[in-house]
Amino acid sequence: MLRILFILFITLLTMFLYLRGRVQHKAVELPVFLKVDHIARNHKTEIDIKILSDIKPDTIELIRLRKDYSFLWGHLNNLYTTNDIKAGKEYYTEAVFRLLAKNYTEKRKGLINRIDHKHEVNIIDWSVDGLVCTLIDSNLLFTYEYPDESIKTTQANIALVLLFQGDHWRIDAMRFLDEKEIINSKN
């Protein structure tokens, strides 16, 4: 009798543990609109926008572009330091993400930090439907911080294609035109 009770007890215990395991919730990734993007929100930079296109964005579209462009650079700087390609995936188109993933070696502790101080965004084309923007970011001021606490400031020119996908602007292509050193604390 005692043996039957013991077996029953063990069976119930096993079933309890099995069922408990099944109903356990797995960790789920929150949808984008519920996440707080600290990297983007903590990023500050100065952006001047000049509209050279015949079709011009309206004020609301410009506010959106300015905000997303700052967020994009927040993520590009984070990527530059950490090689964390997933953190900013919302700001890259699929093609760019694929390129980054292809060249991914490993996530690493930052050696060089890059800070973007100032952008002069020249909008070259703006689509009628507000979904495509081509631009040249001229006189972009970058500061690189090295592990020995030396810094280097450069001025760069970059051409970019941005596409409005999902609910924000994403980088689709780039041409890094040039970069020249203007301040080097080591010299």
Binding site: L76, L79, Y80, N103, T105, E106, R108
Partner: peptide
């Protein structure tokens, strides 16, 4: 490490 404008490549 090769630092392209996008990412560091080991």
């Amino acid at each position: 490490i090769l630092y392209t404008v996008f990412q560091p490549i080991e």
